[in-house]
Design a protein around this nucleic acid. Structure first.
Lengths: 192, 192
DNA sequence: ATGGACGTGTGACCGAAATCACTTTCTTAG
DNA sequence: CTAAGAAAGTGATTTCGGTCACACGTCCAT
């Protein structure tokens, strides 16, 4: 009924938190709402990657598929994270990764052109820098965990860092993120 | 003889490229030059991490040592990269990582306070964002490589991405980055 | 020049985790 | 409610890469 229900609100994206009302009004129309069903692809392989996506609700996985179609999960992204195939997004080329929903997911897409256009405004680059640093730290933890290649420790680190995600991600998917086989993962949490 | 030789120049750090002369003059004294010998620690374990370091010349490694004092290398940083123990830097706490020189290295240190103070000036946050995104993409490539855990592929990817580094890094150090043993690494490039 | 530290190559052995094959349990759509 | 498919558990087997042990070469520093 009310159009207001469909339009973006100031508290839909944490990016808007520090903006004045007029700054918010200036930017709000650049963020395009879209809803995806569980299993749907936000980015499919070889898509042109025109947007970076803010996850408003739900859970997605960013994956690479090798020549044998074996899947490797680069990251999970949940509420309040920005995700996309960054190499493809930045170079405006076709994706070599896929972004697929593990749950029903709501996103706000921001196009590359709009992204670059607004970066200089209202300390948005500072906002994205903070997000990026957080991601960098998370990635370093992940790398360290992978370097040790002790399945048990990896599982336990994941358990410790993201306890809530454990319930939302099937074990058969988690193992693609941890880099261990489904079977070893299955054997892990019973022998203890 | 000449003081000028000791003071920072505009082309010492790519950060200054897009600044006017007056903007440069305003900032230049915040960057503290320091020279390290090969093997020296820029950050030792449990140091307070007060600075982020711009590598002007040389090569460093960012490492974690586990309880058995086994070393894992999170990243190499060479010319024109910024490096530090980011979790410790951002929280201004003691480092759990070490930053050690593989070669004689020249750095410009920027303190946390100065860093936060100048972020809002002259689109510096945009500069750091770009650096951060590049790091993010590099990290994702690394993660993917580690997930596959095929020593051969990992070595070849490193070879492809950083051919010049291969000559500068001892094999016994490279293996700590690739997450494979010195012996398997040694056997790799002969069987082909 | 020589001895020690360091980096590297190589063989033998072993074990942890991948793979394969199958069963059981849990979901979900009709 | 039930059938079909997805997810998860489990045993048997194999294999890749780690560990151990030792040899060899090179580069400084005394």
């Amino acid at each position: 009924m009310q159009n207001a229900d469909l339009s973006i609100k100031k508290d839909d994206i944490d990016l808007f938190e520090n903006l004045t009302d007029s700054e918010f009004l200036e930017l709000k129309d650049l963020f395009h709402y879209k809803k995806y069903k569980k299993g749907a692809f936000i980015i499919a392989e070889n898509d042109m990657v025109k947007h970076v996506y803010f996850i408003r609700s739900g859970l997605v996985k960013l994956s690479y598929f090798d020549d044998d179609n074996k899947e490797f999960i680069l990251s999970f992204a949940q509420e309040n994270w920005w995700e996309t195939d960054f190499p493809a997004f930045y170079n405006q080329t076709k994706s070599s990764l896929t972004l697929q929903c593990i749950e029903d997911t709501e996103t706000y897409g921001l196009s590359f052109d709009d992204y670059t256009a607004i970066l200089d405004k209202h300390s948005l680059s500072k906002y994205f820098l903070e997000k990026s640093i957080k991601g960098h730290i998370a990635n370093q933890n992940r790398i360290l965990s992978l370097l040790k290649h002790k399945p048990k420790e990896q599982y336990e680190q994941f358990l410790q860092l993201y306890p809530s995600l454990l319930q939302r991600i099937p074990k058969s998917v988690l193992c693609l993120y941890l880099g261990i086989s489904r079977e070893t993962l299955s054997r892990l949490y019973k022998t203890r």
